[in-house]
Design a protein around this nucleic acid. Sequence first.
DNA 1: TTGCGTGCAAAGGTTTTGCATGGCA
DNA 2: TGCCATGCAAAACCTTTGCACGCAA
Lengths: 143, 143
Amino acid sequence: MAKTGYNTGGKNAVLDFFRSHRDRQFTADDVINALEEKCRATGEKLPGKSSVYRIISKFEEMGALRCFFDSETSKRLYQYAGEHCDDHFHLKCSECGQVVHLECKIGDQLLRHISSDHGFSVSAGKSILLGECEKCRKKRENT
Amino acid sequence: MAKTGYNTGGKNAVLDFFRSHRDRQFTADDVINALEEKCRATGEKLPGKSSVYRIISKFEEMGALRCFFDSETSKRLYQYAGEHCDDHFHLKCSECGQVVHLECKIGDQLLRHISSDHGFSVSAGKSILLGECEKCRKKRENT
DNA sequence: TTGCGTGCAAAGGTTTTGCATGGCA
DNA sequence: TGCCATGCAAAACCTTTGCACGCAA
């Protein structure tokens, strides 16, 4: 990963948090709350709100984080950017927020078809397929 | 379309606007500006800002409009919801904003595959594939 | 020592809400 | 007449910015 600037506690804390929850997306506020909890436990220094926003922006710029949007709350959502996430689609459960990587041939086929037949070059990494995961569907059907 | 409440000038103006631009997405402010222009020309009464927000919310609730997000500006975007838009994916050009309906067999195949092999029921209508349309790609390559 | 990183508070911009008034059915 | 719709202004909300200080390298 391209690295710029200084290596500080705030940056490390934020990146650690995203790295240890790679299959989820978080708002800036989620991150702040999570860090608050962690720092309360460990006694580490808590980065200020604006710093977290700035750190997140920097990571996004560097490509370490990916930015999406929550259609319910209209807040920005961020997720750790895996190595090859540009190549494939991502399924997101609207209910629990889990994100699944769709690393399948048929995804590639769709991309090629869209490119050749519709003249559209889709950025799979930026495209989220929203739906409901199996777990949440079962939970919903059993109530 | 399910119809609730009274039939008023504001509602009609907003719905007319979306109906006559079905392949685009607009922010609340876009709508307000467009109505302002139209009303300046026709002399009709201009609905207030908060009314437009309330009208849009109501239409979204009724299913007449669909809500998305602009990742650049982080504003809500609305688009007229066509008859069968739930069935298929939509391609959106990040550059010019054009939205294309992907009414293709391969889209259905992908939906079925995701459902059977990944246990995910995707809402195609809510899933936007972001990319670059042919026109914008050519424009970009010629500069 | 240099200049990036940080914290706090204030500003910015979009969307929502309260309340009194107006208008449809 | 009974509700819903509207307008205005204020509030709420998330995010960005200004400025002075702190800290990594």
